[in-house]
Amino acid sequence: MNVKIAASKEEREDAYSVRTKVFIDEQNVPEEEEIDRFEDESTHFVLYDDSHSPIGAGRFRLLDGLGKVERICVLSSARQNGAGAAIMEAIHDFAASKGIKKFKLNAQVHAIPFYEKLGYEAISDEFLDAGIPHKTMVKETE
């Protein structure tokens, strides 16, 4: 597995293709909510398998001085093998290179244990985003 920062239109399309399969096709998120106005101001990450097929994605942007982690997803066939953690590690490394030490994300409730293992802490009550239960989580690094 290899995580890349999307540096070309093709790599960004790879990220969108994974997000479409996971969020739109699998979870029924409306396309207009999934691909949003923050795409151009975000840094996009794509996880490729050993045959260079895109299997995971995520994006990162600055929001009020925090690193906002968004759209973390892995194809169902690639889950449970460290793929999500690889994407998150790449995002955290990128943020560290920019001096960012505080992170925020809105986690689907079923994914909270995954983020807790990475040091995130839930700080909100449950809320719906695209009809899916979420909680806001934060992390601060040293």
Score class of each variant (00 low, 15 high):
Leu128Pro: 02
Pro133Ala: 02
Phe60Asn: 02
Lys9Tyr: 09
Glu10Leu: 13
Cys73Asp: 11
Ser76Met: 09
Glu11His: 09
Glu11Met: 12
Asp125Tyr: 08
Tyr120Pro: 00
Val69Ser: 01
Tyr120Arg: 05
Glu33Pro: 00
Gly67Thr: 04
Arg59Ile: 04
Tyr120His: 04
Gly56Glu: 03
Arg61Pro: 00
Met1Trp: 08
Ala122Ser: 15
Ile72Gln: 02
Leu62Pro: 03
Lys102Gly: 07
Glu126Gly: 05
Ala96Arg: 15
Ser53Ile: 10
Lys135Gly: 00
Glu11Arg: 05
Gly99Leu: 12
His44Leu: 12
Tyr16Arg: 10
Glu13Tyr: 02
Phe60Lys: 03
Val74Leu: 11
Ala111Trp: 03
Arg71Phe: 13
Gly99Arg: 12
Asp40Pro: 00
Leu66Pro: 01
Ser17Arg: 13
Gly58Arg: 05
Ile132Lys: 01
Leu128His: 05
Asn28Lys: 13
Phe60Tyr: 14
Asp125Ser: 14
Asp14Asn: 13
Val3Glu: 04
Ala6Ser: 09
Arg19Thr: 10
His44Asn: 06
Asn28Met: 12
Pro30Tyr: 02
Asn106Ser: 15
Lys139Trp: 08
Ile24Ala: 06
Ser42His: 03
Asp64Glu: 15
Arg61His: 15
Asp49Pro: 13
Leu118Ala: 15
Ile132Asn: 04
Glu34Lys: 07
Asn2Arg: 15
Pro54Ile: 06
Cys73Glu: 12
Arg12Thr: 06
Ile112Ser: 11
Glu140Met: 05
Glu39Thr: 06
Leu62Ala: 10
Arg79Val: 04
Leu118Lys: 11
Glu39Ala: 07
Ala90Lys: 07
Ala7Asn: 15
Ala15Val: 06
Glu89Trp: 01
Ala57Pro: 05
Phe23Asp: 01
Leu63Asn: 12
Val46Cys: 09
Tyr16Gln: 08
Leu128Tyr: 13
Ser124Ala: 04
Lys98Phe: 12
Asp50Phe: 09
Ile100Trp: 11
Ala96Cys: 11
Lys68His: 06
Ile112Gln: 13
Glu89Asp: 14
